[in-house]
């Protein structure tokens, strides 16, 4: 059983990333389940998806303390998901910061120590700078796929399975760009 959480901010494409992972897992013969949050989250709120695959999956939600991976498209969102990670689980996070409304309004502060804290307290962590990769991919909207590429190094699916999953879920005219973004993400080093 593998448990993967994707998290980010509304509009970053968290749900698409989780769909592609599910597609790859189903094609590889696994049972898959996922749970996502719609609604209020769309207006710039926090968004997360729980993806689980294995021989037989019951709960669509990951139990706290059991996530193998937490993949975050925004730095702060990582901190809301820490309690889901298991001791030897891995955090893969995009270094980008997006100010929540209370921070933008000057009412609260964006914590300055997140990156250092993650490095000091989470054994397996990958804090990524995705800017160059996104520039090369040609679209900032490919962040979700770049992060998926980074995750793919640690999962059992083949290049072909990933490519097929991307083709199945991305609009045709964006397929090539996304395949490129995936490869760039896969090559990213912390």
């Amino acid at each position: 059983m593998k448990n993967v959480i994707f998290a980010g901010v509304g509009g970053q494409g968290v749900i698409l990333a989780s769909k592609i992972l599910m597609e790859a897992a189903m094609a590889a013969g696994y049972d898959v389940k996922e749970s996502e949050v719609h609604g209020m989250a769309q207006r710039g709120g926090s968004v997360d998806c729980h993806v689980r695959y294995g021989e037989k999956v019951y709960s669509p939600l990951i139990e706290k303390g059991t996530a193998d991976f937490v993949v975050c498209l925004e730095l702060l969102e990582t901190m809301r998901k820490l309690e889901y990670l298991k001791g030897d689980g891995m955090i893969i996070v995009n270094r980008e910061k997006i100010d929540p409304a209370p921070v933008a309004a000057g009412l609260e502060k964006y914590p300055a120590d997140i990156e250092d804290w993650l490095k000091a307290n989470v054994k397996k962590h990958l804090v990524l700078d995705t800017k160059a990769a996104l520039k090369e991919a040609g679209s900032a909207r490919a962040l979700n796929i770049v992060m998926l590429g980074a995750l793919s190094n640690y999962l059992e699916f083949t290049e072909e399975q990933w490519a097929a999953a991307i083709r199945a879920l991305v609009k045709e005219k964006f397929v090539d760009m996304n395949l490129k973004a995936f490869a760039l993400g896969k090559a990213l080093k912390a």
Binding site: G44, G45, E63, T66, E108, P111
Partner: peptide, 28 residues
């Protein structure tokens, strides 16, 4: 799990103690 098995979630990762600002939905 807590209710039926009295099992608390594993807490292998230490708690982060700085305040995490909320991200409430807001008008575009």
């Amino acid at each position: 799990d807590m209710a039926l098995n009295k099992k608390k979630p594993a807490a292998d990762i230490p708690a982060y103690t700085s305040k995490i600002p909320g991200r409430p939905p807001s008008l575009c």
